[in-house]
């Protein structure tokens, strides 16, 4: 048994323990905190699986921003969660446990019976990478080979925004999402909110830029930018924009919009929908990604902020 295997087993055991704790602990708030730690450790598993792109995404979006959403909700619901509902009866729990275990067992069997040799598309990705001029295979898959999925998933994000906004009360419609954060303008949070964002913005854009050839990309960069924006909002330095704002709307559709326009360009003038002309492939993809970065950052930030709650006038 190599030292790497020992480490991997230890990692799996710790993560499993956290997962059990997250499910079993009575207090919801603790479960949320447990889940955040869990998310960060799962990112380590992804590194061990040699999927650094996914590790970055999982840490930034799955563990980080997802954790923030859950934590915010847990804080708001604290107190009500404990008093509520009866747990299901023992029989129900036992049968749920038995059935879940059977599903897990079936899955373990299915995933551990290896086909030999394991099928892979990695060589195909490599041999076609020349068409885009980018070296990061994951970015190539996301932006070229399976661009349709990526574009539709941008629409999913937009629909999530529509769904969240549609929960506003009629009076608050068009107003600003989330509660107004009041913080001491000379306090330590405001200090951090002035100091960190310039560096954070550079890091976010760097992650996008380097995503062409190395791990990184629009999602990961967008998540960093979103967290910078949220920091500034939470420090009370800026307010969330009113959802009626025309600029906001344009930013939110910029990513999928540009994707669609470039795709249609390929349909009209090129070889196919979402096909990039070889000479311009890299600049086109990078400009779509730049628009997506902006859209993703704004979308993620607004998803965290929630439904409009206050009218646009202060």
């Amino acid at each position: 048994m190599s030292i790497a295997t020992v480490f991997e087993i230890a990692l799996a055991v710790v993560v499993l323990g956290l997962a059990i704790w997250t499910i079993a602990v009575p207090d919801t708030y603790s479960a949320t905190v447990g889940f955040i730690a869990y998310g960060l450790l799962v990112a380590l598993i992804w590194v061990r699986l040699d999927a650094v792109d996914v590790a970055l995404t999982e840490a930034a979006i799955g563990g980080g921003l997802g954790g923030v959403v859950l934590l915010g909700a847990a804080a708001r619901l604290r107190g009500t969660e404990a008093m509520t509902m009866e747990r299901p009866s023992l029989i129900v729990r036992l049968s749920a446990a038995a059935l879940s275990a059977s599903i897990a067992a079936a899955l373990a069997v299915a995933i551990l019976l290896p086909p030999n040799p394991a099928p892979t598309l990695a060589p195909d990705v490599v041999s076609n990478a020349g068409a885009t001029g980018m070296a990061n295979p994951v970015t190539n898959v996301l932006m070229a080979f399976r661009a349709m999925d990526t574009m539709l998933e941008k629409v999913v994000l937009l629909l999530a925004i529509v769904g969240v906004w549609s929960l506003a009360s009629d009076q608050a419609w068009g107003g600003r999402p989330g509660p107004r954060h009041q913080a001491d303008p000379n306090g330590v949070l405001a200090f951090l909110a002035r100091l960190l964002p310039p560096a954070g913005i550079v890091v976010g854009i760097y992650i996008l830029w380097t995503g062409a050839d190395h791990p990184g990309g629009a999602f990961q960069g967008g998540a960093v930018l979103a967290s910078m924006w949220l920091l500034v909002i939470m420090a009370g330095l800026v307010d969330t924009p009113p959802v009626r704002s025309r600029w906001l709307r344009l930013v939110l559709v910029a990513g999928p919009g540009l994707f669609l326009v470039v795709g249609l360009g390929g349909l009209c003038f090129g070889s196919a929908f979402l096909a990039y002309p070889a000479a311009f492939a890299k600049p086109l993809i990078l400009s779509i990604e730049a628009a997506m970065l902006l859209t993703i950052a704004t979308t993620l930030g607004l998803l965290l902020a929630g439904a409009p709650e206050r009218s646009a006038e202060r």
């Binding site: 996914v54 995404t57 979006i61 799955g62 060589p123 490599v126 998933e153 999602f219 993620l300 998803l303």
Partner: peptide, 22 residues
């Protein structure tokens, strides 16, 4: 082909993570 992980499932997961977050 020199990759430690097939890039196609990685891309699928990235899409999936974002959908799950939404």
């Amino acid at each position: 082909a020199g990759f430690g992980n097939d890039p196609v499932p990685q891309a699928l997961v990235i899409t999936g993570v974002v959908v799950a977050f939404s």
